[in-house]
């Protein structure tokens, strides 16, 4: 089943096109890993897919209310406990218990700790546990494994695999190997936007300035 379809997409950063002509699909049970050098526009692409910024051109189609987005930062409130942080997002997404998520990300012993006392890796795990409580099938992840140690990366890989096995899908930008051998890799370098003089798409900055 197709969860996400992107057609001839162009995205901008600060008014300038960074990627153009990008098309791909993502099916249920599959993962897609975005690769490319820094500044190619991975974060911009993911933010566009999440609906935080409008695309310059092209279409993004997906069923409504299917996507959960996780950015660089986890959106944790340092004075709230682990359980309170998770419970908040569970209520926002209208899903029930946070227990399975705590269990899966190995956070049960920490659930009463304030988020500020967590280590960087533990925070990241909490941020990923948030994805589990959203109950959304399509995960859009921006560098999900930053500051995770090897054991936690394995834990995260397992969480993603379980999510895929349950009919979910994942789209992520990452540099390291998650051990997800079934994941497709999409290199963004060929989609780098060309300058308008070479036939590239025009950004809002270039609107007929000449």
């Amino acid at each position: 089943m197709e969860m996400l379809r992107v057609d001839n997409l162009a995205v901008t950063r600060g008014g300038l096109p960074v990627l153009e002509g990008l098309s791909f699909t993502l099916e249920a049970g599959h993962a897609l890993v975005l690769r490319g050098p820094n500044g190619i526009g991975k974060t911009t692409l993911l933010r566009t897919l999440a609906g935080l910024q409008p695309p310059l051109a092209g279409t993004i189609s997906m069923p409504p209310e299917t996507m959960a987005y996780a950015a660089h930062s986890d959106g944790l409130k340092s004075t709230l406990s682990v359980a309170e942080n998770l419970q908040f997002w569970a209520s926002v997404y209208g899903t029930g218990s946070i227990e399975p998520a705590l269990e899966r990300m190995n956070l049960r012993q920490l659930s009463e700790r304030a988020a500020m006392s967590l280590s960087a890796g533990q925070k990241r795990r909490l941020g990923l546990a948030r994805l589990l409580v959203t109950g959304r099938p399509v995960w859009v992840l921006d560098e999900p494994t930053v500051s995770l140690d090897a054991a936690s990366v394995v834990l995260f890989g397992e969480a993603v695999r379980a999510h895929l096995a349950a009919g979910g899908a994942a789209l992520m930008a990452t540099h390291i190997d998650l051990g997800l051998h079934e994941a497709r890799v999409l290199d963004l370098a060929p989609f780098k936007a060309r300058p308008p003089e070479e036939g590239g798409i025009k950004g809002s900055f270039d609107e007929a300035f000449a």
Binding site: M67, A68, A71, K77, V92, Y93
Partner: peptide, 15 residues
Amino acid sequence: DFEDGSLDLLATAPV
């Protein structure tokens, strides 16, 4: 909320 990223997450949440 802007600094710790939760504004991004709220903006993509179903509210």
